[in-house]
C-alpha cells in the first residue's frame, strides 16, 4: 500500500543484473553439453542386457527425477565440504547438481523417443549384418535424438530459467547480482521485478524460436 515503485532504480539495475548473464549462460551451456552424452549412456544402461546396469540406471533416474533440485544443490554445497573436506567452487557445485538432475530427465526423454522407433528399423539394420552396437550408433540413437529434439529444446529453456537457483550456492549469475544490488540500494522489489523481466525477455524468444523450427520440420518416418 502506497509503495512508491521507482522506475529509475529498476532501469539502473539492468546493467548490473546483466553482468551475471555470462555465468547464467556458462552454467546452462555446460550442464546441457555434459548431460547429453551422459543421458545417452544412462539410457543404454537402462536397456542393457546386464541386470546390474539396468538396476543402477533405473535407481539413478528415478531418484534424481523425484528429488527437488534445491535439495540436490544445497546437499552438494554442504556435504562434500563439511563431511569430506572436499572444496568445490560454486560453479562446480552448480554444474554437478544440475547435471545429475538434468541428465535424469533427459534420459527419460531419449528413452521415450527410442521406444517410439518402429521395431522394423532395428530389424532392417540387423538384416544387413550390423552388430548391436552398430545398430544403436547408426540407426537407433540418431533417430531417438531427432524424435526427442522438440522435448530437448523445451528442456533447454527450462534449464536456462531454473539456472537462477545457482545464485543460492554463490555462483555470480543474474539473480545473484540482482540480490547483491538489492542489499545495497534497498530496492529489492524494483530489482527483482527487473530481473524477472530480463529472464522473460531472454527466455520467451528462445521458446518461440523452438516452436517455429519444430513446426516447420516435423520428424517423418
Amino acid at each position: 500500500m502506497g509503495y512508491q515503485f521507482e522506475w529509475q532504480a529498476a532501469i539502473d539495475s539492468i546493467p548490473v543484473i546483466l553482468t551475471g548473464l555470462s555465468a547464467t549462460l556458462a552454467v546452462t551451456i555446460t550442464v546441457f553439453l555434459v548431460s547429453l552424452p551422459f543421458a545417452i549412456a544412462v539410457m543404454l544402461a537402462r536397456l542393457s542386457r546386464f541386470r546390474f546396469l539396468r538396476v543402477i540406471a533405473y535407481a539413478y533416474t528415478e531418484l534424481f527425477r523425484t528429488l527437488p533440485l534445491l535439495i540436490v544443490l544445497t546437499w552438494f554445497y554442504f556435504v562434500p565440504a563439511i563431511g569430506f573436506g572436499i572444496r568445490m567452487s560454486p560453479f562446480l557445485v552448480a554444474v554437478v547438481a544440475f547435471t545429475l538432475t538434468f541428465t535424469a530427465f533427459l534420459t527419460e526423454a531419449l528413452r521415450g523417443a527410442l521406444m517410439a522407433i518402429d521395431p522394423g528399423q532395428r530389424e532392417a539394420a540387423m538384416s544387413v549384418g550390423m552388430t548391436s552396437p552398430q545398430v544403436y550408433r547408426r540407426v537407433l540413437i540418431p533417430q531417438a535424438l531427432r524424435y526427442a529434439t522438440p522435448v530437448i529444446a523445451t528442456m533447454w529453456v527450462s534449464l536456462f530459467r531454473d539456472s537462477a537457483l545457482v545464485a543460492l550456492v554463490g555462483v555470480h549469475d543474474m539473480l545473484f547480482e540482482a540480490r547483491t544490488l538489492a542489499v545495497v540500494n534497498y530496492r529489492p522489489i524494483e530489482v527483482l521485478t527487473m530481473t524477472g523481466i530480463i529472464y522473460f525477455a531472454l527466455t520467451y524468444p528462445q521458446s518461440v524460436m523452438i516452436e517455429r523450427i519444430f513446426a516447420k520440420r516435423r520428424v517423418r518416418s
Binding site: 528399423q121 530389424e123 532392417a124 540407426v139 533417430q143 518416418s221
Partner: peptide, 12 residues
Amino acid sequence: GFVSQHFHLYPH
C-alpha cells in the same frame, strides 16, 4: 538380403 513388407528405410 532381407526385404520386409514395410520397407523400413532409415528415415534420417
